[in-house]
């Protein structure tokens, strides 16, 4: 599946930019610098929007497309921001057969976002993951560090309400 690209506005801070510039300066001139710089940039920003990739491209003297190509090749890179609360729904085998797809449908319906997207207010983001190692609790949904198991779709609104 093609990676989703956020259409939310960029909210980078001057402090983040300063950190990124330092990272770029540290790797400039190195062969294969794009990869480590993107990894560290994602640590700073949480994701890799165009504004960040453009800074990386300009700073390292490579084309924006080259940077983007790397960012879409490796699954570790995200092009969408994470919300204050990241909802992760396990779509591993056990959770899937126990009805995780219905949980996913419910969350997307309530929040109006698809997997790999973030709500406009920056509150919630949604990801589909593969097995959190709690198959006995299937189907499982996590909100940041909180784990919710043996769920039915009816319970989803109540869980989300806790974080509103």
């Amino acid at each position: 599946m093609q990676k989703r690209i956020t259409n939310l506005p960029f909210r980078g801070t001057p402090e983040q930019e300063e950190k990124l510039r330092a990272i770029i300066a540290e790797h400039k001139g190195q062969q294969g610098a794009v990869m480590p710089v993107l990894q560290k940039a994602q640590e700073v920003y949480g994701y890799l929007p165009m504004e960040v990739q453009a800074m990386v491209a300009e700073g390292l003297g490579v084309s924006l497309e080259e940077v983007f190509g790397v960012s879409t090749f490796y699954s570790q890179f995200s092009l969408t921001p994470k919300g204050q609360y990241n909802i992760s729904i396990c779509l591993g085998t056990a959770c899937y057969v126990k009805g995780a797809a219905a949980l996913m449908d419910k969350v997307t319906e309530i929040l109006g976002i698809q997997p790999e997207e973030c709500t406009e207010d920056g509150k919630f983001s949604l990801t589909a993951c593969r097995c959190v190692g709690a198959c006995g609790l299937a189907p499982v949904l996590t909100v940041n560090e909180d784990v919710y198991g043996r769920l039915t779709p009816d319970e989803v609104p109540g869980i989300l309400a806790k974080y509103q």
């Binding site: 599946m1 165009m50 990739q53 497309e65 190509g69 879409t72 090749f73 699954s75 092009l79």
Partner: peptide, 15 residues
């Protein structure tokens, strides 16, 4: 350049 990976790979522009 090539965007994406595997079967999704396609030649296109950044973003």
């Amino acid at each position: 350049g090539p965007n994406g990976r595997g079967f999704d790979t396609h030649i296109a522009c950044a973003f």
